[in-house]
Design a protein around this nucleic acid. Structure first.
Lengths: 339, 339
DNA sequence: CTGAAAGCGCTTACAG
DNA sequence: CTGAAAGCGCTTACAG
């Protein structure tokens, strides 16, 4: 059933039926009623391609990710995508997931020129991210999940990474810790730089030092968390607490602590950033982990809304949000031994 | 730059340019050359919506997943999606990820009627899966990842789950084990039923029993794996070996074994099914785990190809593949204690 | 081998 | 408030 047939059935013109269906005001109440009823009865839904061609909008949001080092393999990205998708579905928008074989640039260009998407979401921004100027040049509206360096205002949703890690460090300091290790993500990622700044500022403000030996950075896996933490614990002056950038690196950090015969909490305190992914819950850990918490799933949901605003013409400079992060105190943080 | 402009630039008709671009044979070699060169020079790419409207093909493959119990949260699904996406991109097809708010039925229907996708991929089929007859009724071509019950032939790619678990059990039996536990996935899932059948047939064939106390089934998480294994180990006659349906449940099983003061390998043998996800590698485990192995990422890649065949009109009955599974012997399987 | 023309199924000024 | 008509940017018989 298409529009033409539906119109004929109703004895109306396609124009009127189309307007009624699209909620225009200049349609008499009862024709609108009739049209809507008929559409329901014949289970009519407008052809997507025709609608897109006519309006010039694709009704889809794109996400491009590099092949090879595939963030889809990353549960965090996945959870984010899940939120994005759910929220997009509510507004009838499709999410188009696309792998970049050649370069991210080629993929974005293809999407833009073919008119496959109205906007894209940019995940895991680097401190200096070439994708943002590229999208700008291609004229593709874009919402960044996180923040990056940019000469002009852009739409983004980020959490307060700096504030979160400052708070975490301050909590440890107030418990009496003086050597606090950072098990951070990759420093090319913008969020890792912000978290390092938060950690550093809390330490310096308390008159403590923030030495390189306590400032670890790597991918956020169990293995890397183990390696970084084991390295710190092998120091002449090991930390009495560590702050981890993800629940995965925290798992590794905990293993490293245990493998050294130490007890989490009483010997070494641990705080982890928790993105709220469902597969690993810090409160179910032994001992339950103190966390800085912000749901990445909800961030995905919200970003779909921001994208919709942007497509509706909202000024990117007004599409900027920074979410506060909760600090949730559990059993993995205690005063240092001998304090 | 659109087709009309490109044609004007070349002094040709839109028809000729279109045919040259689409590789038709009835175009003279040098006009083809000229057209291709101009397209490259002006960086022309055809408008997706127009192409779709004209051809009736959307150039996209859909995946619908239930919201709430979201498989996107599942790393296995994620890894599969990654393979699918990569492979689809190679043939210029988009992957459309769509959450079903209401019901999977409503989502599929919307996709079908709006013509958003040419085909869908059906993941995690149940033994009796209502989605398959639904898609049949809606006339949407579909490739199943796995197998399910169906009155008529359908396209699928599956691994030999039954054979894999039979082999795994046979290996343990040949090492001297006589009580072999199964830490299976949810029995509503088709693959879990097949794996149980493989386990059972190996035991019965060897004159052993396959009691319910050794036949565990639940979701494939660390927690559930722990619970099921701990339950079996608390039996009067505990198993001397367990076969786990995923690397996640195997992690839990290993914890349960250790928590009971037992050693993996010498006290209790462990075999896990490994889908080859990158985040957890069985060879890096202590001890390295014996596995039945098949890459779910490659399955995703292959399914995009099968979908392409199906759209090209290939008979679904001829789009059926069952992949053999490798049994990889590592240190977590040994003869039972006292054997 | 090439071009003029119709058509894919919508939307949207424009006229009435 | 409604309809006739043009247009979105492609593809594809059909004629030559």
């Amino acid at each position: 059933m298409n529009l033409k047939e539906l119109a004929r059935h109703l004895g109306l013109s396609q124009s009127t039926v189309s307007r009624a269906l699209n909620g225009y005001q200049d349609v008499s109440p009862d024709t609108r009623e009739r049209v809507l009823a008929a559409a329901r009865r014949f289970d009519y839904s407008p052809n997507a391609s025709a609608h897109r061609l006519a309006t010039g909008h694709s009704g889809a949001i794109g996400i491009v990710f590099p092949s090879g080092n595939d963030p889809l393999l990353d549960p965090l990205f996945t959870d984010f995508l899940s939120g994005l998708t759910n929220s997009a579905a509510r507004r009838q928008t499709d999410i188009l997931v696309s792998a970049s074989l050649d370069s991210a640039e080629a993929s974005y260009r293809r999407l833009a020129q073919r008119g496959s998407v109205d906007a894209v979401v940019l995940s895991s921004p680097l401190v200096e991210d070439p994708r943002l100027p590229l999208l700008d040049r291609l004229g593709i509206p874009c919402v960044v999940h996180g923040r990056t360096r940019s000469p002009r205002p852009y739409a983004f949703l980020d959490i307060d990474n700096e504030g979160a890690f400052r708070q975490a460090a301050e909590l440890l300091i107030s418990l009496g810790h003086r050597r606090i290790g950072l098990v951070n993500g990759d420093r090319r990622q913008a969020f890792a730089v912000d978290r390092e700044a938060g950690w550093r500022s809390a330490l310096l403000r308390a008159g403590l030092s923030a030495p390189d030996t306590l400032n670890g950075s790597d991918i956020m896996t169990d293995e890397a968390g183990y390696r970084l933490t084991a390295g710190m614990l092998a120091n002449a002056t090991p930390p009495t607490a560590v702050i981890c950038s993800s629940i995965f690196s925290a798992m590794g950090a905990c293993r490293a602590i245990r493998d050294r015969g130490l007890t989490i909490g009483s010997d070494i305190s641990v705080i982890a950033h928790d993105d709220g992914i469902t597969s690993i819950r810090p409160e179910a850990h032994h001992p339950p982990l103190t966390t800085t918490f912000s749901s990445i799933h909800r961030a995905g949901e919200r970003i779909a809304e921001i994208v919709a605003d942007l497509i509706d013409g909202k000024d990117p400079a007004r599409c900027q949000e920074v979410w506060p992060v909760d600090l949730i105190f559990r059993d993995s943080t205690r005063p240092p031994a001998g304090a």
